[in-house]
Simulated assay, not measured.
Amino acid sequence: MHRSFHSFNFATYQLAHRQPFGALRVFNDETLMPGASITYSLTDDHLVLLLPVAGGINFEMGGGTQFVEAGETAWINGRKGSVLTINNPYETGAVDFISAWIALPELNDQLPVTLPFDLTTTNTLHTLFASPQIKAHIGKFTGRADATFKTSEGNTRLFAFVLEGAFEFTERLLLHRDGLALNAVTEADFESLSDGAILLILEV
C-alpha cells in the first residue's frame, strides 16, 4: 500500500492553486507499507531528493539498488523518461519519506549521491545540499527557540515544510507536515512552538 500527499499538482491530482513553485515541481509526503513499492516515470529532467523521515527505503533508477535511511538524503539526477522505483524493504513497519523534484536548466549524469546529516546540534539550520539553483537546509529546534533565515545571494524564493512539531513562520502557524511557499523574500523569521520540532527549507 502507498499513500502520498501532494503539495503541488501531481499525476491525477490537479488544482488551480497547486501550481509548481518555481523550480520545485513536485513535493510529496509519502508512506510505503511493508514490502510495498512505487514506480515513477519522470516527464522531464529533474534533480530528485529523497528524505526518509522514519525508517529507510531502497531506490533504483537505471542501475543498482541503493538504500537511504533517516539521517540521510539521496540526490538523484533523473533524465526525462527515466523510471524511479522506491521500495520499503522491511517486513513490518511503514516508512515515511519526502520526495521532491527540482527542475534544473542543466543536469549532469552523475550517479546518485547519499549524504548524511546530524541533528544533534539544535537551534541551527544545517545545509543538506547546495548548488547554484537549489539549496536545502534542515534543523531541529527546542521549544520557543527563534531564528531568522536569510536566503542565499540572489535567491528570493523559499519553501518551508514542518517535518515534526510546529512553528510560527513569518507570523503564520505551521503544524506537523504543513508547507509554506514564499516569493520575493530575502529573510524569514520563525519560532519553534514545540520541543524537538524539525524544519526543512528549500531555496528554489
Score class of each variant (00 low, 15 high):
72 E>A: 11
73 T>I: 15
74 A>E: 09
76 I>V: 14
77 N>A: 12
79 R>T: 09
80 K>S: 08
81 G>K: 01
82 S>C: 02
84 L>Y: 04
85 T>Q: 13
87 N>E: 07
88 N>D: 13
89 P>W: 03
90 Y>P: 01
90 Y>R: 09
91 E>R: 13
93 G>H: 05
94 A>D: 15
95 V>Q: 05
99 S>R: 10
102 I>K: 09
103 A>F: 03
103 A>E: 09
103 A>N: 11
104 L>A: 00
105 P>T: 12
106 E>Q: 11
108 N>S: 13
108 N>T: 13
109 D>N: 15
110 Q>G: 13
110 Q>E: 13
110 Q>K: 14
111 L>F: 12
113 V>D: 11
113 V>F: 10
115 L>D: 08
116 P>N: 10
117 F>T: 03
117 F>H: 12
118 D>Q: 13
121 T>Y: 02
121 T>G: 05
121 T>M: 01
122 T>W: 11
124 T>R: 12
125 L>F: 14
128 L>M: 09
128 L>F: 02
128 L>I: 03
129 F>M: 10
129 F>A: 13
131 S>I: 03
132 P>Q: 06
136 A>T: 06
136 A>P: 04
136 A>N: 04
137 H>M: 06
138 I>Y: 01
138 I>E: 00
139 G>T: 09
139 G>M: 00
141 F>R: 12
142 T>Q: 14
143 G>Q: 14
143 G>E: 14
143 G>T: 11
144 R>Y: 12
144 R>T: 08
145 A>I: 08
146 D>R: 12
146 D>S: 15
147 A>D: 10
148 T>L: 13
150 K>N: 11
151 T>W: 00
152 S>Q: 12
152 S>E: 08
153 E>K: 15
154 G>H: 03
156 T>N: 06
156 T>V: 01
156 T>P: 00
157 R>G: 01
159 F>S: 03
159 F>T: 01
160 A>I: 04
163 L>E: 03
163 L>A: 02
166 A>Y: 03
168 E>W: 04
168 E>F: 06
170 T>A: 08
171 E>K: 13
171 E>T: 10
172 R>L: 09
173 L>N: 04
175 L>S: 11
177 R>S: 07
178 D>T: 09
178 D>K: 04
179 G>F: 08
179 G>T: 02
181 A>N: 07
182 L>C: 07
182 L>W: 04
182 L>Y: 04
187 E>N: 14
187 E>F: 08
187 E>Y: 09
187 E>I: 02
